[in-house]
C-alpha cells in the first residue's frame, strides 16, 4: 500500500470512514507511578477491610459490643467493589480503552445482577402464588439420610448410606463408634473434645495444640439455631457442659444417641 499522505487525508479506500487515523497511536502506556499507586491503594484497602473485620471480632469478644451484622457485610463488600474498580480501571486499562470493552463488562455484571435477583426472588417468594410450595424451600431441607448411588465415597471405611442420619450426625457417630471400638467411652470423649473445641478452638488431642496457622477465631454474635431439635447430641453436650462435665452426656448408649430423626 503506497498511498501518499494527501490521498489518505482525502479518501482512503482501505479506510473509507476514517477510523484508521483515530485508532492509530491511542494505545496508552500507563505510567509506572500510576500502577504503583494503584497497587499501594489496593494493599491499603486490603489492610483496611481485614482490620475492620478483626476489630469487630475483638470488640465483640472483649467488650461484648455487637456491631450490627449488616455493617460487616456492607463494609467488606463496598471495599471489595472499590478494589475491583481500581483493578479494572488501571490494571486492566479500561480507563484508557475504547468504551466498548467497558460496556461489555458492565452488561455482564447486569446479567449477574438479574441472575442473582431472580434467584433470590424465587427463594423469597416461592409461596406467594401457590402456598403449598412453601415447604419446598424450608431451610435445612429434610436433613435426612444421604444414600450414595453413583458409587461409593472414598472416605475410610466404605459406607453407602448414612443410615438415617444427616451427614453431620453421621460423621459424629463414626467418631464415637471409632472410640467405642477402642474401648473408650466414645460419647464422653466426643463431649470432652467438643467442649475443648468450643472453649478455645484447640481442636484434637488435649495438649497437642494446633499450629497457629489453623486456629479458627472464637465465634461471636447471633447464631440462633445452633442447639435446636436438629441436633440431639449437641443439645446433650451443651447440658453436659453446663452441669460441669458430669451431666447426662455419657449416660445414653452411643447407638441410640443421634438416631432420633427429625
Amino acid at each position: 500500500m503506497s498511498h501518499s499522505h494527501a490521498q489518505t487525508a482525502a479518501y482512503d479506500e482501505m479506510d473509507p470512514h476514517g477510523f484508521q487515523g483515530k485508532s492509530h497511536g491511542d494505545h496508552v502506556i500507563v505510567d509506572w507511578r500510576i500502577l504503583l499507586g494503584v497497587l499501594l491503594a489496593l494493599l491499603f484497602f486490603t489492610a483496611l477491610t481485614t482490620t475492620f473485620a478483626t476489630l469487630e471480632q475483638w470488640v465483640a469478644g472483649e467488650f461484648a459490643i455487637h456491631i450490627p451484622h449488616w455493617v460487616n457485610v456492607v463494609g467488606a463488600l463496598s471495599i471489595a467493589v472499590i478494589k475491583a474498580s481500581l483493578v479494572c480501571m488501571f490494571f486492566m486499562q479500561l480507563r484508557y480503552d475504547k468504551p466498548l470493552n467497558t460496556m461489555i463488562f458492565l452488561f455482564c455484571l447486569l446479567a449477574f445482577g438479574i441472575f442473582l435477583g431472580l434467584t433470590s426472588l424465587d427463594l423469597g417468594k416461592r409461596d406467594a402464588i401457590y402456598g403449598f410450595k412453601k415447604g419446598t424451600i424450608k431451610p435445612g431441607g429434610d436433613a435426612q439420610s444421604v444414600t450414595l448411588t453413583g458409587g461409593k465415597a472414598d472416605i475410610g471405611p466404605r459406607y453407602e448410606t448414612t443410615m438415617g442420619k444427616s451427614m453431620v450426625e453421621f460423621a459424629r457417630q463414626r467418631y464415637i463408634d471409632r472410640y467405642n471400638a477402642m474401648g473408650v467411652d466414645g460419647e464422653a470423649k466426643w463431649a470432652a473434645e467438643m467442649a475443648h473445641h468450643l472453649a478455645g478452638h484447640k481442636h484434637g488431642q488435649a495438649g497437642a495444640e494446633l499450629p497457629d496457622a489453623n486456629r479458627s477465631f472464637s465465634r461471636v454474635g447471633v447464631t440462633p439455631h445452633l442447639y435446636d431439635e436438629h441436633d440431639p447430641v449437641a443439645v446433650r453436650a451443651l447440658e453436659h457442659l453446663r452441669s460441669g462435665g458430669h451431666g447426662p452426656a455419657g449416660e445414653l448408649p452411643a447407638g441410640e444417641s443421634s438416631s432420633s430423626g427429625h
Binding site: 453431620v168 467438643m194 484434637g204 494446633l210
Partner: peptide, 19 residues
C-alpha cells in the same frame, strides 16, 4: 479430630455444630 471438613458426601468432621 481436625480433618474431614469436606464437601457434601465426603464430610467427616465430628465436631460440626450445624447440619
Amino acid at each position: 479430630g481436625y480433618g474431614g471438613k469436606r464437601p457434601g458426601a465426603f464430610f467427616d468432621y465430628p465436631f460440626a455444630q450445624h447440619y
